[in-house]
Design a protein around this nucleic acid. Structure first.
Lengths: 199, 199, 199, 199
DNA sequence: AATGAATGAGCATTCATTCAT
DNA sequence: TATGAATGAATGCTCATTCAT
């Protein structure tokens, strides 16, 4: 593939991720995609075979692009095991700003047809194993309850951060809009940490 | 409106809730809707004005149809304050079986266009106030951490149950399929209760 | 037919004439018709068999309802033969105000499908014969050119008044808007009379 | 735009002029249009944006395509000022054979919605100014009445020729079918000329 | 590699007409 | 007589995809 072709392909992919994540598969039109990427519609078919082929590729790309944890957060957690929950939560929350497409693509994928799911890459084991070590250590130190498994722990933190972002619209209306100010988020993180910690 | 018309209208609404929640607004086609409800397409326009009018009505109906808590659960929680978290979680989890459309409509609404959101009915205050009383009592009894607000507490439980259902597909693949067996769910509920409780 | 039925029928007919003449056959929708007449759509089919049946009836009714000349104008023309052209023109012009539907139905009929034309009633001979007498007298008196037939004369006057009304929109734009003020019309009538008269 | 596209566009336009002028805006269906032009329906939207966009373009095209007077007629009128009325009338009458769509589009436009009217091109001034010179000269020569303005004169001739063509159907039935034979037309032209001329 | 032109199936919506009460 | 409910065939317009250059 020539350099020009590679650029075109990546341009399409980048644009498509933005639009698919915003409007979903059925809400996205190939024409809009082409216009937004300022390329000829036909290129999409040349490089991705079909609309749904492009969607699958977007999904994969988004998933692969997401690094759940960066080195800095890892170090911080290692140094202060008592702040583990807070650090993970904050990290997860921050993920949304850095990868605004991730949550939405996740949501679309969970709602829409299964076909695209098959191509979803398995999650990186190493992210979890590193976290698990930190968790185990915190348990040993008596900072986290011994009776709770790592899976439940991490599930809860993922749930809180995902729910926070994915249901912002309806929660703003039905629970409280203050939750989505930066103070609201800080309060949520702090209290969650306390709630989970061994008192 | 004649009896026949009422039946037709309700038939459309019921069918539409099923299909909209399954495929979302853009993924649903009026023709399919009409065929599934075995009615003439035109009736949709006669009774709901437009596809989006029908969607809004579905959303409202689903929201109004959901009773977050029933009397039995309330009584159980009052009798055994130590089991409050478990009862709420189990209740939320059960909601999905009883109202399989609720979570999905919620998700679509959060993802798709805002316009339908405007018509969303405000949440019933009384459900929350009753829960808050139970929460306050548990705190007083030293069963739940004093430093955590009711909002954070309930948010976490909603998050866990919502995330569990809404992300089943991707979590099965990326975290663990066992989580979605009935034992897996029981384990999650039990451990969450422990995790949150004052140890 | 009962009194109530007669009233309903006439109500439909009257309303339909207004709407058909305004929008033509294809531009008129049965639903609008029913709503405008505040009757049930089905009545149209009961009384007129079909949309096109109603249109035909409207056409006939409008044609029959138009009296080309009233007695007063006739008397005036008899008393002042020199003003014949002016009187006829003014009378024709006035017709439009009195029967605003006539010209438009005429136009629609000339443009649209022939089928409705068949049911058009033949023109009243007597209107023409009375006019012809007046014309002949004016010719004898040397007021109108002897070499011009009655048909040409009356055709010209009909043409001027018809054209004036039917092409108002485009003429306003392409010829002159002043033509359609009341002074403009007076000027047109006066000059036409002079132009045709023997000088 | 590629040659192929230009051809398709022009094919659509030509076909549409024929059908719109025949059946009017509401009487014309996009499907018929596409079928008649043997093109894909979508092309209409690609090139003209909408049905009404196409109609407007048809109107404009027809108007621009009409040359009210050709050089030959102009010369003839200059050489024989006494025949001016006859020449103009004959020229106007001939217009219909050459531009059969012109009168009908004019009529539809006058009857149907105003929106398309806005895009109507202003009439060519020069056609009128050339005619006015001829008219003025005829007046000076005493061939046409001095008391009649050019506007009234030309209005009458336009009216006669328009009315002759646009009301053929109803006039055949209500006035005289002979009028529409070629002798009938000749007679009309001749007598009108005489009628208007100074005797 | 890239683009403009073209296509056929599909889509939300409307319409004239008939049915049932 | 009158009305609300229902229908099937349009109707204007769009979409994902393919063709030709």
């Amino acid at each position: 593939m020539q350099q020009r072709a590679i650029e075109t392909r990546e341009n399409i992919l980048k644009t498509a991720i933005g639009i698919f994540s915003e409007r979903g598969y059925h809400g996205t039109k190939v024409d809009q995609l082409a216009k937004a990427a300022a390329i000829n519609k036909q290129r999409i078919y040349a490089y991705f075979h079909s609309k749904s082929g492009l969607f699958d590729q977007c999904l994969t790309t988004v998933f692969e692009g997401v690094k759940l944890f960066d080195a800095k957060a890892m170090t911080a957690a290692r140094l202060e095991p008592s702040r583990l929950t807070e650090i993970i939560l904050r990290e997860y929350m921050a993920l949304h700003k850095k990868h605004p497409y991730f949550w939405r693509m996740l949501a679309w994928t969970n709602l829409e047809d299964d076909s695209s799911l098959k191509k979803l890459p398995g999650l990186k084991e190493k992210d979890y194993t590193a976290l698990k070590e930190l968790f185990d250590k915190a348990v040993e130190l008596g900072l986290l309850p011994r009776s709770v498994s790592f899976e439940t722990y991490i599930f809860t933190l993922m749930a809180v951060s995902y729910f926070y972002h994915s249901n912002r619209k309806t929660l703003s209306k039905t629970l409280s809009p203050e939750l989505f100010t930066s103070q609201g988020m800080e309060k949520l993180i702090a209290e969650c940490s306390l709630m989970i910690a061994v008192q």
